[in-house]
Amino acid sequence: MQVAGIDLPSRLWIGTGGLSNLTTVADVVDAAGPGLVTVSVRRTCDTGSGGLLDTLQALGVRILPNTAGCLSARDAVLTAQLAREALETDWVKLEVIGDETSLMPDTVELLDAAETLVQQGFTVLPYTTPDPVLARRLADVGCAAVMPLGSPIGTGRGIDDPRAIEAVRAAVAVPVVLDAGIGTASDAALAMELGCDAVLAATAITRADRPAQMAAALRAAVDAGELARRAGRIPRLTTARASSPMAGRVGT
């Protein structure tokens, strides 16, 4: 798949949130074969080389900094600018949350920050509510993709409203990346069947009992969902429809 004209090697993207230690990273990345790996940007007193950054760069994966935890457009813009400087990428997964309880996007601040960052030359991938109108507004201001949530961050509930994800898909031409809420492989497959271009999973992997195994499962599920969508599923019917011919039955 492509985002902003760049080929990404996989439709499974992974987050590093919830990682217990750096030694798990290599195993997870190896099992996931991710298109992108997201990292947050946080204060540091250690001005030596960063452990996580070194590890990811050694693994040769594309790094997508995020603005996780930002509560205002102003903080998100500064965080993106710092990330561009520290990580030498103008790509940013833009998160502006409304409060620390629901972790739901503050859509007003989000649109404002997205427009500002696009004007400053960033490739902006916004984390958003699954709202087709907002998704269109985000695409209209120049976002390179939209990342609707399946269910709130960290809940692992999967996709609460599949029709909303389909509506977002139908509303925009840019890639749609299901973000937040993935709990297990079937959630990722469903996202792809609904028409998403990619899936981002973090805690589904990092907090699984066996993270690398879940990463492998999500990788297979994303591929399966994409294949199934392209295959063209049969319609859902309200009544049964025989698959065997009625003619030629014994006793007729």
Binding site: S40, R42, G50, L52, A68, L78, A83, A86, K93
Partner: peptide, 9 residues
């Protein structure tokens, strides 16, 4: 403010 990449998100 001094920042670097950190696990998260």
């Amino acid at each position: 403010e001094v920042v670097t990449a950190h696990q998260g998100g």
